[in-house]
Design a protein around this nucleic acid. Sequence first.
RNA 1: GGGCCUCUAGCUCAGUCGGUAGAGCAAGGGACUUUUAAUCCCUGGGUCGUGGGUUCGAGCCCCACGGGGCCCA
Length: 503
Amino acid sequence: MTDDTAEPDRIEQREVRLAKRRRLLEQGGEAYPVGVPVTTTIASLRERFADLEPDTATGERAAVAGRIVHLRNTGKLCFAALQAGEGPLSAMAGGPHRIQAMVSLDAVGQQSLAEFKALVDLGDQLFVAGEVITSRRGELSIRVDEWRIAAKALLPLPNLHAELSEETRVRSRYLDLIARPAARDMVRTRAVAVASLRSTFAERGYLELETPMLQVQHGGASARPFVTHSNAFDTDLYLRIAPELFLKRAVVGGLERVYEINRNFRNEGADSTHSPEFAMLESYEAYTDYRGIAELEQALVQQAAIAVGGSTTVTWTDGTEFELGGEWDRISMYPSLSEAAGVEITPETPMGDLVALAERLEIEVAHPIRGKYVEELWEHFVKGRLERPTFVMDFPVDTSPLVRDHRSIPGVVEKWDLYVRGFELATGYSELTDPVIQRQRFVEQALLAANGDPDAMRLDEEFLRALEFGMPPTGGLGMGIDRLLMALTGEGIRETILFPLVK
RNA sequence: GGGCCUCUAGCUCAGUCGGUAGAGCAAGGGACUUUUAAUCCCUGGGUCGUGGGUUCGAGCCCCACGGGGCCCA
């Protein structure tokens, strides 16, 4: 909306509710009071009175507030189901965050009952106080002797008995959160998972850092950046595509165990596994290597699974049980590719052979780099076969410019990718610490950039200078937080992000 | 970037051969003191994504643009 004074379109139901708001004010009431005197929460009442017999009076008074999600009037008795946003995880979804309010002629008198019927709508935030009872049908209820509107809803709630359309769910997530317990669960699951990551790091003596999001030079990954402009410095700045080069500077400075959980931005397409803005974990640990980091990654994910669902066996939303427990498989990229393709492929396999094979399979490779061909072929032959969580070890050199050469296998670097649920969940390196080789790798990247690869890395002189002061042997880890949630819940990336980007 | 599907009431959707715009929930009026998507009677609510075109006549056919989804690259 460009016109600040523009009113929403005239909606019949909104007009009706605005009239009720006016009537409420004319009677000296408030449509949006500064507060309501609640004494407890719906969830705790549910917990305390879980097993009451039908038609029981507890003799105990309670005052709660919540959104009206069902409203039924039967003349001299009204029923309103109040829903609170809080509540435990999905194991108990569907009930514990709701309680029924019963507004009867006996308890509130004729005038109050009439006002309730005239002024209260489905969707309003309602405060009620009264005795905790169960109805004849056994529903935990409050026999209301005092009620107040806590916030008047001007717009009608969507139909809670039909699925919201994909677009409404993402565009109006607040409605999705009201309507769908699974949407609320996702928010909590995510918070629990991230808290678990932090506590696993804390147990291992890691420090959480915050490195620049606005960078003079982007680096640390192969991706197209978002560009913005600083007026004060009169210079273009990049939203970071990765924090890697700054976290490594921290390791040079003697911070030997560091991690960061924060947003990265990549100016690329969005689909079910990619978002232009995504939360990323990166960690670095001095005096370990990619094998030690694989052990760390496994612990991080398994601890998160336990924190979220109490077990390393996770249950996805489609009901699938997925095993994240135990020691994860480790396979090697070249041997696994050779076996699946039925042809021996090694780091020495000539470019011509790789191109011929790719063409025969109609695999298009964007840039003519040997490593890219190997990775594309590997994805074609092997990726889809992985069912259990699997570390894929030892990648080609020319696609991994920040990783050190393998200690014993020529042409390969000490890097793994972790595949879970068919997508790449995390990556781990024995970090390249040799400033001379690192400079060469950057120069090779610059050549690719000159040849039109927009994802190629740029040479970062300041980072190289830091390396020249000596960076200890280090293992590093990167994991997408959104993807971790996808692995734990079986949902698509848009469901793991509370407010995904929509045009 | 390419292909396919989709946009109709607040929400979710139907709409026949191109001929007066439909349902459920929600809303308004009425009845009802134990309802669980309460029930019963009555009523209101539409710029059919936007802009063109074809036609006597377009929600429907054609073109362009925009939003959303799925598949491929």
